[in-house]
Computed example of a mutant assay.
Amino acid sequence: MTEQEVRRYLRQMKEEDSERAFHDFYNLCYDRLFRISYYYVKNEDWAQEIVLDVFMRLWEQRTKLPEINNIEDYCFILTKNASLNYLEKESRHTTQPSEQLPEPPDQANSPEEVLISEELFARYVKALDRLPERCREVFIRIREEKQSYAQVADELEISVKTVDAQLQKAITRLKEILLTD
């Protein structure tokens, strides 16, 4: 996603109440926001619901969006907070008997560790978005969705060797992007 493209959509949404611009903005940002939400909630249905709620909020705030300096970070934070709030709400609804509760970890992560991990994840998501579409698709299916090479090849109607080549290309580009930023 380019900053100019996003800014154009935001201006059209504000000045013209353009639903078309909002739809284009949605198409541009949905995958990234879905991945962010899924990272936190680990449930596809919940992540979809959360991202739709985030977009509803963005539409309601459309007149203020062009004034935000870094819309990418703003959307990331909105999605992260909505995901964490959703998890909190779900945990209140699903109370477990005390013998079924998981044991607390020996040592909780410090706020610094949490911040570093979130910053790294944000950089990873941005780097993924900069990959060519086919590379990104193959990488996500194999590394995040844990599909086999054969399954990806079959679904995308490409050879297993092409899947392997695309995955290697994605890994190489991700390393370059992450190490240079």
Rank of each mutant, 00 (worst) to 15 (best):
T2C: 12
T2Y: 15
E3T: 14
E3R: 14
E5N: 15
R7A: 15
R8V: 15
Y9V: 14
Y9R: 15
Q12V: 01
K14R: 05
E15P: 02
E16S: 01
D17N: 06
R20A: 08
F22R: 02
F22S: 09
F22Y: 07
H23C: 09
F25E: 14
L28R: 11
Y30F: 06
D31G: 11
R35Q: 08
S37Y: 08
Y38K: 11
Y39K: 12
Y39V: 07
Y39H: 11
Y40L: 13
Y40H: 13
V41K: 08
N43Q: 07
N43E: 05
E44H: 08
D45I: 11
A47D: 04
A47G: 06
Q48T: 03
Q48W: 09
Q48R: 11
E49C: 05
I50D: 14
F55Q: 01
M56P: 00
R57M: 04
L58I: 04
W59T: 02
E60I: 08
R62E: 03
R62I: 03
T63L: 07
K64F: 09
K64R: 15
N69M: 07
N70E: 13
I71C: 06
E72P: 14
D73H: 15
D73W: 14
Y74K: 11
Y74H: 14
L78N: 12
L78P: 09
K80S: 02
N81Q: 06
L84W: 00
N85W: 01
N85G: 06
Y86S: 12
L87K: 04
E88F: 03
S91I: 01
S91C: 01
S91Y: 00
S91D: 00
H93E: 01
T94K: 13
T94M: 06
T95L: 06
T95N: 04
S98L: 07
L101Q: 13
P102S: 11
E103S: 15
D106S: 14
A108T: 05
N109S: 07
S110R: 13
S110G: 08
P111K: 00
E112S: 04
E112T: 05
E113D: 08
E113Q: 10
V114R: 05
L115V: 10
I116V: 07
S117N: 09
E118N: 12
E118M: 11
A122G: 09
R123E: 02
R123M: 03
Y124C: 06
V125R: 01
V125Y: 05
V125N: 04
K126Q: 09
L128C: 02
D129P: 01
D129G: 06
R130K: 13
P132A: 01
R134W: 14
E137P: 10
V138P: 04
I140S: 11
I140V: 14
I140P: 07
I140G: 11
I140H: 12
I140D: 12
R141Y: 10
I142G: 12
R143D: 09
R143A: 10
E144R: 10
Q147G: 00
Y149W: 05
A150P: 00
A150Y: 01
A150F: 04
A150N: 04
V152M: 04
V163L: 02
V163G: 00
D164F: 13
D164S: 12
D164A: 08
L167F: 05
A170T: 10
I171G: 01
I177V: 07
L178V: 02
L179W: 02
L179P: 00
D181Y: 06
